[in-house]
Design a protein around this nucleic acid. Structure first.
Length: 559
RNA sequence: GUCCCUGUAGCUCAGCUGGACAGAGCAACGGCCUUCUAAGCCGUGGGUCGGGGGUUCGAAUCCCUCCGGGGACGCCA
């Protein structure tokens, strides 16, 4: 149920009908009606809805916009539409002022839909959101955290917009980096069992890795020393991967993220999928050999340069594995595939889309949302986020520091396009001032009023017995309008892949509530008005909670 | 050098696929707690939307160009 869309649709039809009858009477000349907008103006002085149709038609009709607007208004049939008056303003805007009857339907609607308010009916479209997909060789860092918040929120938005959503984590548990990872672990193992070996120069120096090796030693003692090297390495890497992946799962769970699918890169290697896709690309003539390596002609798809698929040493590149992986996604029948990537991967976008096109898939069904990187500051100094040097601040440290709610809200509040400077000191100090508390406080305040009502023995009437039209104050009407916007807001956020819109939305709604709260009393000596206001609060609470659910932020009843 | 992101109030940022006087929070200043949570509300001050062109009835928004900041350009992932 989308109140705004319904009204938009009705007004649109009225406008089109009016224009047609004006043409029939020879008042306006035009061939086509352009794509015009019916929107809720930012300033409510400009009515409940406004359209720019007169301005857009000026050229074709060869008539001043205001003149067109006048004719349109004279022809429009508003009977039964709730339109109270129509005004022409500015350069030729037509503003529609509705009576409030449509607003008074909102509370009952929302109250009955409860946690389903905001949902659009299912549209039978399968979409996959793949996000975080951190290398299982270390802790989750701030970039992973941002990706997690953005990806999970986006998935929540898409679910509510009617898509069938699957969340996926791609585990890079094969390839070159795993070799280096294993080298590092093996060296640590040997060192910790009293051997004088050098740590690999490009190895993973993180302290968490030493802990993992200590665990291996606890379980295996020195028995790995006597094994053939291959066997020893196999045990080490499997042990470490399991530990790391379990740890990642646990951390993300603590961040409110639950995946539907954990996909192993290794499974692609084991099933021969990479060889298959290379073969296919060769057959399609999108490959060539140069200096012993096999290259993909990504320049044929607008990329800046071609890319190696198979190294001269016969091993496939990460890119080759990724092509096989994305092919697998489409083979699984997704209508829309969304990846959340760090901006450092942007060079990879064109060739990935190119590879999909080469394989016969529609590259427009693959959306890659690049998020700019997070820069971490500590006491004004940039903290380099390198797993290998081990100086990173991990996601679970962050959660312990500022809490899941604040962290998730903070990461998603800003557009993925904007660079994010995260100062740890600031995050700690400001935890009381974080915008998330402003919203949660609104929710807790509402709950408190209901507790108070209960304590006073006030029983809340059934919504169908409540006269919502008693809500006449500006603050009350503003809240109703905002709540009515919610489903459309979700749809726009889904369409534009803009999770930050929901954070913005719920901040606005909370502000309207706080303002209302400070101007009017809910519990008062007028039972009918009291009931109407309690109902208003009930649906405000529902909408705040539904918004916070999307963001993965809790809705406390007390603060 | 090429490509991506970015430049809006003192600070951090919103501004929906162009629309009606550019917004919020923080910071500054002044008010509001004997009644539902002051983690709140109300008010004041503060901006050549980086510069310059262009498209348009209309540009913070689109295009070009210049300048500043961040990032990517590996037979790493």
């Amino acid at each position: 149920m989308n109140p705004i869309k319904k009204l938009d649709y009705n007004l649109r039809n009225m406008i089109i009908e009016a224009l047609k009858s004006a043409r029939d009477k020879g008042l306006i000349n035009f061939e086509n009606i352009p794509e015009f907008e019916v929107e809720v103006p930012r300033d409510k002085q400009h009515g409940d809805f406004a359209t720019n149709v007169a301005m857009l038609m000026a050229r074709e009709a060869r008539m001043a916009p205001r003149k067109i607007a006048e004719i349109l208004i004279s022809m429009i049939d508003t009977s039964g539409s709730g339109v109270e008056r129509i005004e022409i303003a500015g350069a030729g805007f037509i503003n529609f002022y509705l009576n409030n009857s449509w607003l008074y339907e909102i509370p009952g609607l929302v109250y009955n839909m409860k946690e389903k308010y905001g949902f659009t009916p299912r549209i039978n479209t399968k979409v996959q959101v793949e996000f975080v997909s951190a290398n299982p060789t270390g802790n989750l860092h701030m970039g992973n955290a941002r990706g997690g918040a953005i990806g999970d929120t986006l998935a929540n938005i898409l679910e509510r917009a009617g898509y069938d959503v699957e969340r996926e984590f791609y585990i890079n548990d094969a390839g070159n980096q795993i070799e280096i990872f294993t080298d590092s672990m093996e060296a640590r193992y040997l060192q910790l069992t009293g051997h004088d070996v050098e740590f690999p120069e490009n190895g993973y120096a993180g302290l968490d890795l030493i802990d993992t090796v200590r665990n291996i030693i606890t379980d295996y003692d020195k028995t790995l020393l006597d094994m053939p090297r291959d066997q020893r390495r196999k045990i080490i890497v499997e042990y470490a991967l399991k530990e790391k992946i379990d740890y990642i799962k646990e951390t993300l769970l603590g961040f409110g993220i639950v995946y539907d699918v954990w996909f192993n890169e290794k499974s692609l290697h084991d099933a021969g999928k990479i060889d298959q896709v290379l073969q296919k690309l060769k057959e399609l003539d999108y490959c060539y050999e140069n200096e012993g390596a096999i290259w993909f002609k990504s320049t044929a798809f607008g990329d800046e340069k071609d890319e190696v698929l198979m190294r001269a040493n016969g091993l496939p590149t990460y890119f080759a594995a990724d092509i096989a992986y994305h092919q697998d996604k489409f083979e699984r029948g997704f209508d829309w595939v969304i990846n959340i990537w760090g901006a450092d991967h942007h060079g990879h976008v064109a060739r990935m889309k190119g590879a999909m096109q080469a394989l016969g898939y529609d590259p427009d069904k693959l959306d890659i949302l690049l998020m700019q990187l997070v820069r971490l500051y500590r006491a004004g100094n940039i903290v380099r986020m390198s797993k290998r040097t081990g100086t990173t601040v991990s996601l679970d440290e962050l959660i312990a520091d500022v809490g899941k709610d604040a962290a998730r809200f903070f990461f998603v509040m800003r557009s993925p396009d904007s660079h994010l400077d995260f100062d740890l000191e600031l995050a700690r100090q400001k935890s009381q001032e974080n915008p998330v508390y402003y919203v949660q406080y609104a929710h807790a305040r509402i709950c408190s009023i209901f507790r108070q009502a209960e304590a006073e023995g006030i029983t809340v009437a059934k919504p169908e017995l409540i006269d919502a039209s008693l809500l006449q104050e500006d603050e009350e009407l503003a809240i109703l309008r905002k709540i009515a916007d919610f489903p459309e807001e979700i749809n726009i956020a889904a369409r534009t892949l803009a999770p930050q819109r929901i954070a913005r939305y719920v901040l606005d709604l909370a502000a309207l509530f706080h303002s209302f709260y400070n101007h009017h009393r809910v519990l008062n000596d007028n039972p009918d008005l009291q009931n109407a206001r309690l109902l208003l609060l009930a649906v405000t609470r529902i909408t705040i909670k539904n918004s916070l659910d999307i963001l993965g932020v809790s809705s406390p009843e007390k603060m």
